[in-house]
């Protein structure tokens, strides 16, 4: 985020009002108000009707406000939700680690390539990110299935006799997240690695540091902002992931996004879904704040 540029004093008021007012009003109505609604409805009771929840302000109710904690109580009584939250964090964490393990060497290799090559290599990282997310996850069904690429290859090589069960397991979910979110990891890592002054390496090497020492003492610490940004960009959306556990995961790959989706579309319990979403948001607030904090510090360091 850059600071506002110095403005000449003559600014048409109507133009200023349009530029700020239009997107502002849109985001208030379609972004902020909906969140307040989720919060509000998480405190109401489900009813059969349209809309299927009790109004908070009910003139004929016992009090003016009708706040029900039932949804939250249910959320902590039923193991399903607790297990889903924990499993989401667990799966997102492991997938983020895998992304870092593959993304870091990849970003490093791109940053070390000759400048004309870098743009091509970067474009090739971003290109799959542009094609349909759903279809990319679908593509992995063809790789991991019982008659998929991996099993066919291993059978043909004689390594295994029976196809391995990979599709519809947690492993498939890890791979799906790793694949889908890899660009989010590589791009910030590349940005911080590319910024490194090659002279630093040269100097350290000239002074007798072994390549691994140079990496550990210079490259790694200086690329820490990229590591944090990339990890957060993978970890945060992965927690709420729905498509990947739904298509690649097994019945026990209970991620909270999937549980919420099923709760909403099969049981049609809107207030409970709203409570699930509110708690998910609370879980995400901490990593989002960490991310914003490091982004702001990183940006301030650049300027």
């Amino acid at each position: 985020m850059t600071g506002p540029t110095a403005l000449p004093p003559r600014v048409d008021r109507w133009w200023r009002r349009t530029v700020i007012g239009m997107p502002y009003a849109w985001l208030l109505l379609f972004f902020l108000v909906p969140f307040l609604l989720v919060f509000k409805i998480s405190f109401s009771d489900p009813i059969v009707g349209q809309p299927p929840f009790t109004p908070l302000l009910s003139p004929q109710g016992p009090g003016l406000f009708h706040i029900s904690w039932d949804n939250y109580r249910f959320l902590f009584d039923d193991d399903l939700y607790l297990v889903s939250y924990l499993k989401s964090v667990h799966i997102a964490f492991i997938s983020t680690l895998l992304c870092l393990l593959l993304g870091y060497p990849l970003a490093y290799a791109i940053a070390r390539a000759q400048p004309p090559w870098r743009n091509v290599l970067l474009l090739l990282i971003i290109l799959p990110f542009w094609t349909s997310f759903l279809l990319r996850v679908y593509a992995w069904m063809g790789v991991l299935g019982d008659h998929g690429l991996i099993n066919n290859l291993l059978l043909w090589l004689g390594v295994i006799r029976q196809p391995l069960k990979i599709l519809y397991t947690d492993l498939a979910v890890y791979l799906g997240i790793l694949y889908s979110y890899l660009p989010y990891m590589v791009l910030p890592l590349y940005a911080s690695l590319e910024r490194l002054d090659p002279d630093l390496h040269e100097a350290a090497a000239d002074l007798g540091a072994a390549p691994l020492t140079v990496f550990r003492d210079i490259t790694l610490p200086l690329s820490l902002p990229g590591i944090i940004a990339g990890s957060m960009l993978v970890f945060i959306p992965a927690i709420g992931e729905f498509v990947i556990p739904s298509l690649l995961g097994g019945l026990d790959s209970l991620m909270i996004g999937r549980t919420l989706y099923d709760e909403f579309f099969s049981n049609r319990d809107w207030p409970l879904s709203a409570a699930v979403a509110t708690v998910l948001l609370l879980i995400l607030v901490l990593p989002i704040m960490v991310f914003q904090h490091f982004q702001a510090r990183d940006q301030a360091g650049v300027q």
């Binding site: 972004f31 996004g257 979403a277 914003q292």
Partner: peptide, 19 residues
């Protein structure tokens, strides 16, 4: 508000817009 939709899980955005 401009930055938040980038990190918000779709499942929350979808539910909130429906409501």
């Amino acid at each position: 508000m401009v930055a938040a939709p980038l990190v918000m899980p779709e499942i929350i955005t979808g539910l909130s817009l429906l409501l």
